[in-house]
Every structure is written in C-alpha cells, then in structure tokens.
C-alpha cells in the first residue's frame, strides 16, 4: 500500500500539493507515482518566474526505464524548483513528500479553488480504482 498523507491535496495524475504558511504551495509526485516509475535517475524542474497553466507539463522525472511529465496541479507562477534534485534525483524515491519536492508555486487568484484538487481519501480511491 502506498503512503497517502492526510494533510496534502492530490491530483488524478499523481501530484501532491502542500499549502505553505505564506500562501505558496509545494508540489511533488506521490509515493505511488515514485514507486510506479522506479529508480529515478534524472529530474528536470521548472525555473523560478515561469508562469504555468493548470495541467501544463512543467517538470520531467526520468527513471531508468522512461521519462514522464509532471503537470502543474494549478495555475500560477513557479517560485522555485528543488535545486537538490539535479545531483540527487533518487531523493524523490526515498522521500517523495519531503526532501523530494519538485517545485514551489504562487497560485494565481482563485486557482486553488478552480483546480478541483482531491482529498487524501479521494486520492486513495483513485489508487484503489487503478488497482494500486
């Protein structure tokens, strides 16, 4: 069973979203996603200042097997990409909800409400439906 922390929000495409105290959000991929991908060997994160639409491909995670896009869970501006991942992409495998975060974003006005993010319970149901 994969780990789905109760305090985060999720997308059907297996990103998680954490709201930080200053109103920005932190985004990563879920434990389920990192497990499905396998050992990550390369991560490309977006640069600060980039404006992204909801569901826009904005990061790439590559395992030994394949490259996969990571989508912006909501509209906004990138405030940071995780700089540690270029040297240690495996951090996403070992700590997907912590040190393995991919990017931080400042949500556009109303973007969080518009994004239709899933609760932990709803995301767990998505996983159950996928057989994961």
């Amino acid at each position: 069973m994969s780990n789905v922390p109760a305090d985060l929000k999720y997308t059907k495409s297996h990103e998680w979203v954490r709201t930080l105290k200053d109103g920005t959000v932190e985004v990563g991929i879920t434990d389920h996603a990192q497990h499905a991908l396998g050992d990550l060997v390369f991560v490309e994160v977006p640069e600060a200042g980039r404006a992204v639409k909801a569901d826009e491909a904005c990061a790439v995670v590559e395992s030994v097997k394949a490259a996969s896009d990571v989508y912006a869970p909501l509209a906004g501006e990138i405030t940071a990409g995780n700089p540690k991942l270029s040297d240690a992409p495996e951090t996403v495998n070992s700590d997907p909800y912590g040190e393995g975060w991919l990017m931080r974003m400042r949500p556009a006005a109303g973007a969080i409400a518009a994004a239709g993010l899933l609760s932990a319970a709803d995301y767990s149901q998505v996983l159950a439906a996928e057989g994961g």
């Binding site: 396998g38 050992d39 060997v41 395992s63 030994v64 097997k65």
Partner: peptide, 8 residues
C-alpha cells in the same frame, strides 16, 4: 521487469 530496485 524488476523485483525491487532495477539499479540494485
């Protein structure tokens, strides 16, 4: 395709 870690 793998049992645990492919790199392992």
């Amino acid at each position: 395709v793998q049992y645990g870690s492919q790199i392992g």
